[in-house]
Write a protein that binds this DNA or RNA. Structure first.
Length: 468
RNA sequence: GGUGGGUUGGCCGAGAGGCGAGGCAACGGACUGCAAAUCCGUGUACACGGGUUCAAAUCCCGUACCCACCUCCA
């Protein structure tokens, strides 16, 4: 069975057939680095990271490009308000973003092109569009260049809208536009804007419009035609529609599949910078581990809206710890963590079906239950295979507990040694008390340790303890 | 006005014509000195009203409510 993916353009789940056998080119719209990343941003990254990992798992060589928009109106205005250079703001936020990605075990893309590094490519593409009669330089002397929406019959194809039905943008300032829906490919420099934010072009100094960057960069790194283009649902229109129009008008095949992830909402509304209801990543990570947040995201389907709440995140964390605890116990029993093995059939089937991560997660839980039974039976080889399978599935979802991405256990070795000594001393006393059936004393010790945050469990192999 | 998406048990969250995903919580049972963990078991869920069908949470029609996009936005 092959991988099937939901394609926004055709509005159906269809078989994924790569343009070139064994190879997949994926372009995902990254962020405009104008402020700190919130949970929603990271969801998009996690969703597409899972796509990438699954494609890789299925044997494809994946070229994964995720861009960074490091120049745009907002960056300029925010930087001005903050009284610092725009490139400093963008760079700072880019580093924040990298930290957030790393905290969630989002793999670095094959390459992460920045808009400012690809102005010549964009200029070349705009020139092509002008030559083909799909773009024009405004005649008002602003230096703006617009895409001529009316010149491209396919405009609206991605989101199935007719130009006539679209509300004209109100911001316009129709300036030099022939049609209010025409969008900027190039923005002539305004006298109020810093000189550092402009580049030379045939139309005078200026900077690229938002949409053209992705067309130019996708073309540069993935070729004129590539397999999958992804991003958040809000990008369908106008961003992706515009990208598609530009690229096709320039004669490029562009993306064969369009994938869009849904929102994480808070109080029923989408989380967004402009609404000011963003839940920033560091704030969440103060309460939950990155791996738990990632599990929470992966446990829902990428096309479903997730109403974020700490309660739900807490439940997800408990569910994940169940898996994690099994991995620990099983590894203990088998004498270490085996290499990831073979994912179970249900898991594969779920993932092949438009990245059905919820069903995939359910499959993991089933295997864990089997594993827990094996654990009780002490069946070595079977348990080992079972654990290896669980690890393989977790790995595909980016949830392998031992993945170095989650970082080393932080802590002071000397302090740990002291704690170990103190706790084992108490456990020794408790064991003696229990041997003498002095349960009052035994329970008192257990309670005291629990208050200190140490959880004791009695197992056939004696007492085990862990930090609660 | 146009275009999409949604409404599932106490909660989260899948599914998309027939066998009740999975998790959390709850309640029983096994195990345990008691716990914890684990295992086994327990739920008359699919917004509302009609319809199609032998069979509908799933298809059709209608209604209500919610969300998103059409302006920067994952």
């Amino acid at each position: 069975m092959s991988i099937r993916l939901y394609d926004t353009a055709t509005r159906e789940v269809r078989d994924f057939v790569p343009l070139e056998e064994g190879r997949v080119g994926v372009y995902v719209c990254g962020l405009t680095v104008q402020s700190e990343p919130h949970v929603g941003h990271v969801r998009s990254a996690v969703n597409f990271d899972v796509l990438r990992r699954w494609l890789t798992h299925r044997g494809f060589a994946v070229d994964f490009i995720r861009n960074v928009t490091d120049i745009d109106d907002k960056i300029l205005t925010k930087a001005e308000v903050q009284g610092r250079p725009w490139y400093n703001l963008a760079y700072d936020m880019k580093r924040e973003l990298d930290r957030a990605y790393a905290a969630l075990n989002v793999l670095p893309p094959t390459y992460e092109p920045a808009a400012t590094g690809h102005v010549p490519e964009m200029v070349a593409l705009i020139e092509q569009l002008i030559a083909k009669g799909h773009a024009y330089a405004a005649e008002d002397g602003t230096g703006d260049v617009f895409f001529d929406v009316r010149s491209w019959p396919g405009y609206g194809a991605l989101t199935h809208q007719r130009i006539e039905d679209m509300e004209a943008a109100e911001d316009a300032d129709p300036r030099g536009k022939r049609d209010p829906r025409d969008f900027a490919l190039w923005k002539g420099r305004k006298s109020t804007e810093p000189e550092t934010a402009s580049w030379p072009s045939p139309w005078g100094p200026g900077r690229p419009g938002w949409h053209i960057e992705c067309s130019a960069m996708a073309g540069k790194y993935l070729g004129q035609a590539f397999d999958i283009h992804g991003g958040g649902v809000d990008l369908r229109f106008p961003h992706h529609e515009n990208e598609l129009a530009q690229s096709r008008a320039a004669g490029h095949g562009f993306a064969a599949y369009w994938m869009h992830n849904a929102w994480i909402t808070t109080a029923g509304e989408k989380m967004s910078k402009s609404l000011g209801n963003s839940l920033l990543i560091p704030a969440v990570l103060e309460r939950f581990r990155g791996i738990e947040l990632r599990y929470y995201m992966v446990a829902a389907h990428y096309r479903s809206t997730v109403e974020f709440s700490f309660e739900a995140l807490g439940e997800a964390a408990v569910a994940f710890r169940r898996i994690e605890a099994f991995v620990e116990r099983a590894a203990d029993a088998v004498g270490g963590l085996p290499e990831p093995g073979i994912a179970c059939a249900d898991f594969v089937q779920a993932m092949d079906d438009d990245l059905g991560t919820p069903a995939a997660v359910a499959a993991i839980h089933e295997v864990v239950r089997e594993g827990n039974k094996l654990l009780a039976g002490g069946d070595g080889p079977a348990l080992r295979g079972n654990l290896a399978s669980v690890l393989a599935m977790l790995d595909v979802l980016g949830l392998h507990p031992a993945d170095p991405a989650w970082g080393e256990e932080k802590g002071d070795d000397r302090m740990a040694a002291v704690v170990e000594a103190l706790v084992s001393g108490l456990l020794q006393q408790r064991a003696e008390a229990r041997a003498e059936k002095d349960f009052a004393t035994a329970d008192a010790i257990r309670d005291r340790l629990k208050e200190a945050g140490v959880e004791i469990t009695d197992t056939p192999d004696g007492q085990k303890w862990s930090l609660a």
